[in-house]
């Protein structure tokens, strides 16, 4: 009897999760389609987009550059030191291209923006729901996917892509400093190694991956925020669920991108 009820619970939870995932993916697809529909875009969208990029990227820029220089330099310095210790000096280029440009830049940027803007967006949506502001938009026939979701998603996608690239450039440049210190390598030699190791498809992968991160770290908080209850107590629950799912999405995208890279 106990076993059966335990099984029932497990099955119920699995079905519930599956239903939720299907709803989420279905809505994600609907929003994704709107991204490519001209009708979705109006001057208002650009206006909100600009404001959102300002909050997401420009306000963060100073802090972001400091973090890139400090963390990036430290990471690259330590790793180059280890590379030298184990005698794999000829792989510096591959390391910087493969690890720094393709993996570290997007993941660091995504984490920073998810923590800062993703959580803010999640809370904003949940509060709008609790205040019935989403109902107000619906009452005026304003599509929340077009008005609220789309500009925020595009803004974060653009921000993650640009900041990831900036991160990659800053860290690669700080790698120059450490190569000079650790290997006594000049600018030209370093530039040659990096240039040889980086392929144009790396740029493309960086862009696509950053854009995918940007989409999901905004869409998921928007989705969970907008599905919160009407009570204010529902706000923290919505933020919690949204952010946990953001984390899962980041891991899934990272794994998928690794699989795609090595297939």
């Amino acid at each position: 009897m106990n076993g059966v009820s335990w099984l029932e619970k497990l099955g119920g939870a699995a079905l519930e999760n599956w239903r939720e995932l299907r709803q989420l993916l279905g809505f994600a697809y609907a929003v994704f389609r709107r991204l490519f529909s001209r009708a979705s875009y109006r001057p208002l969208t650009v206006d909100i987009l600009t404001t959102q990029i300002y909050f997401t990227a420009v306000q963060l820029l100073g802090f972001f550059i400091v973090v890139s220089i400090l963390f990036g330099s430290l990471f690259i310095g330590m790793t180059l030191f280890v590379i030298k210790e184990i005698g794999l000096t000829e792989y510096i280029g591959q390391f910087i291209a493969g690890v720094v440009v393709l993996e570290m830049a997007p993941i660091m940027t995504t984490l920073l923006i998810a923590l800062r803007s993703g959580s803010a967006i999640n809370a904003e949506m949940a509060v709008m729901k609790a205040n019935r502001e989403l109902d107000a938009l619906a009452a005026f026939d304003i599509d929340i996917a077009q008005y609220l979701f789309l500009p925020r998603i595009i803004a974060v996608m653009v921000s993650v892509v640009l900041l990831s690239s900036l991160f990659a450039i800053i860290v690669t440049l700080s790698g120059l400093l450490f190569s000079a210190l650790i290997f006594g390598m000049g600018f030209n030699a370093y530039a040659d190694i990096i240039a040889k190791a980086i392929e144009y498809k790396d740029f493309l992968i960086l862009m696509v991956k950053s854009a995918a991160f940007g989409f999901f770290i905004t869409f998921i908080p928007l989705y969970y925020g907008s599905r919160a209850g009407y009570q204010l107590t529902a706000v923290p629950v919505a933020v919690l669920r949204g952010m946990v799912n953001v984390f899962i999405a980041i891991v899934v995208i990272e794994v998928l991108s690794l699989v795609a890279r090595f297939l």
Binding site: P43, D47, M128, R132, A136, F140
Partner: peptide, 30 residues
């Protein structure tokens, strides 16, 4: 509607709340 249950958007100013409707439906520029 003009209703107590249909509030203004709290993160927009009065001006923006009023302007929003035509900006959205009539695609007006800023």
């Amino acid at each position: 509607p003009v209703s107590a249950d249909i509030p203004l958007l709290s993160n927009l100013s009065v001006f923006q709340n009023i302007a929003l409707i035509r900006q959205y439906h009539q695609r007006l520029t800023a």
